[in-house]
Design a protein around this nucleic acid. Structure first.
Lengths: 176, 176
DNA sequence: CTGAACTTTCAGAAGTTACTGAAAGTTTAA
DNA sequence: TTAAACTTTCAGTAACTTCTGAAAGTTCAG
């Protein structure tokens, strides 16, 4: 189905995406053979996909008495999933980029032959860093409050405008 | 460099990422030959990468009198870049997923044999949809206000708490 | 122990994506 | 026109990713 393709942009391959989709949509836990047969992929492939889903902390295993097979189930809610994937990708993609940028900026301290590039990197670093801190804060709110905040939506903007009017132009630093 | 790898997760390949990084870091426009030589890739590859960057509306072309080569420059600020990439990916990845989900949900109207799966899909659809609407609102704020909002950070949460206390429990619908 | 019921691993095959470079296309100056 | 100075295209190849399935590993009941 189409869900697999989506998955490839979230950092895992088609089979992993499809298996996860099946698990999420199934009310009861599913075993590896059934997954393989349903999707038409080999047993080995299913095993590797499950392994990866476990590395992402996205599935848990169930056992039924009198049956030695492992039955898989998604771990946590849709929110947990989104949150976990966000964490993992951050750890794998963003954090290394931020520290690379920091290293370059440190080493170039008093080397003035490429001020422009350094300033660009500083800007990117600061933007990414600010965004990530914000994302952390939002994530730490938990689903309920975050959802409320999203629904509030443009309401938050009104608060912001109000604050500006009350406090003057403090935050309006970088018009372009 | 490491920037290329980052790019591959943003929907384009290594060379495209590297070329864009070079352009962003260069104060003056750069021509295709220089790009190719600097990165050690073929002229043809540079041409295709530039074509892709143009499809993403991320570069513009400059000409110098007495020189027929095309000189490339990033189009817009870092913020514009982030914003453009977000738009494009949304159009390519999220929108199709949302409409697929909607189609399935419509067609399954009064088919009760898989209520659980349908409910899961509805949840995912609603979460994704809410998130995207929110992202739209934030994006339409423009860089200055968005930055202010991010810096406000946990302040917004206090506002939210205050609102809850004043208005009662209206928004607290889905505890888990 | 033994062997049946499983899961995991991994070498090689299949499939996919990216890159090269020669050829074709475009533009402009003379 | 012509030809020089470029850019684009694309068939073939290289590099990478994913998948298969047989073999090895694990667990457990008898």
């Amino acid at each position: 189905m189409h869900f697999g393709e989506m998955g490839s942009r979230w950092g895992f391959n088609r089979t992993v995406g499809q298996i996860y989709a099946l698990l999420v949509l199934s009310e009861t836990p599913v075993n590896a053979n059934t997954l393989g047969e349903t999707l038409g992929v080999s047993r080995g492939n299913v095993s590797m996909a499950i392994k990866e889903l476990q590395a992402w902390r996205l599935v848990k295993v169930q056992h039924y008495p009198g049956d030695r097979k492992e039955y898989y189930q998604p771990l946590g809610t849709i929110w947990d999933m989104a949150s976990t994937v966000f964490d993992e990708r951050r750890k794998r993609e963003v954090d290394p980029t931020l520290s690379l940028l920091r290293d370059i900026l440190m080493q170039a301290q008093d080397n003035h032959d490429d001020d422009y590039a350094l300033q660009q990197m500083r800007d990117i670093h600061d933007l990414l860093d600010m965004f990530m801190r914000w994302a952390d804060e939002l994530q730490s709110l938990g689903p309920d409050k975050l959802q409320a905040l999203m629904k509030l939506g443009s309401g938050a903007i009104k608060v912001l405008n109000l604050k500006d009017k009350l406090l003057g132009d403090k935050t309006e630093t970088d018009k372009q």
